[in-house]
Amino acid sequence: MFANLAKLFRYRGLITSLVARDLKARYRGSVLGFFWSFINPLLLLLIYSFVFTTIMPNKIAGVQPYTLFMFCGILPWTWFSSALLEASGSLIAGGNLIKKVLFPAEVLPIVSVLANMVNFFLGLPILILFLVLYQHLPNPWNLLWFPVVVVVQLVFTLALALTVAALSVHFRDVRDILSNLLTLWFFATPIIYPWFQPEVQRFKTFFDVNPFTHIVVSYQEVLFFNNGPVGHWKWLLSLGAGSVLLFLGGFWLFDRLRDSFAEAV
C-alpha cells in the first residue's frame, strides 16, 4: 500500500494533465468557454442575494451582509459535493482505461477532486469582488489560515472520494445514496445559518461530530468574520490530523479493491 502511495507522487504529471484536460473539456464548445467558471458562481450569488434580501429578508444579527456569509460556505461546499459525486462515477466512466490500459485507477477520483478544487479557486475572485463591493474586507492576519483550511478540506475530500469511488464499482447505488446524503449533509452543516445561533448551540454535539462544520466555520472565520482572530483553529487542526488517517484508510480500501476493478467495472 505504501509503495502505491509513493507512486502517487510519480503520477503528478499524469494528474496535472488530466486535471487540465478535464477543465478544458468542460467548457469546450461553449461560446463563453472558460468564463463560465466565473459566471456560474456569480449568477448563484446574484440569485441568493435577491432571494435573501428582497423576497425573504434575513435579519440574523452578526451575519450581515447575509449573502456574503452564505457564499463563504457555499463555495467550498460546492467543491466538496461535486468532487464526491464526480469521484463516485469516475472509475465507471474511466472503465476503458482500467480495463484496457495499465492505468493507476486512484488517479481518476483524485483528478475529480482536484478539478473541482480549481473550480473553487476560480470562484474565489467573485467572492473577493463582492467582499470589496460590500466593503466587508477580511482580517489580513486571518487570511494566513486560508491555505490551511484548503489543505484540510483537500485531504478530507480525497479520503472520501477514494472510498466512494472504490465502493461504487461494486455497488452502483452508492451514487444515488450519495447525492441524497449530500443534500442532508448540506442542511446539517452551518452553511446557510450561523453556528452560534442558539438553536444550533442546543445540538452542539451533533454539529461537532460533523467534520464539515469545522471546515465551513473556519472558512467563515477567515473570510467573513473580520472582527476577531480565528477561534476555530484547534478544531481545524484536529480535523486535519483525522483527515490524514481517514485518507490512509480510504487509500487502503481502494488498494484492497484495486484488483477487482478491471473485472467489475
Partner: peptide, 20 residues
C-alpha cells in the same frame, strides 16, 4: 483508450503518451 472526444488530437497525444 482514454482519448477525450472534446479536446484536440494534439492534446490527446500528450495525455495518452503520459498515460502510457
Amino acid at each position: 483508450a482514454g482519448f477525450h472526444p472534446e479536446i484536440s488530437g494534439r492534446e490527446n497525444v500528450f495525455i495518452n503518451g503520459i498515460m502510457l
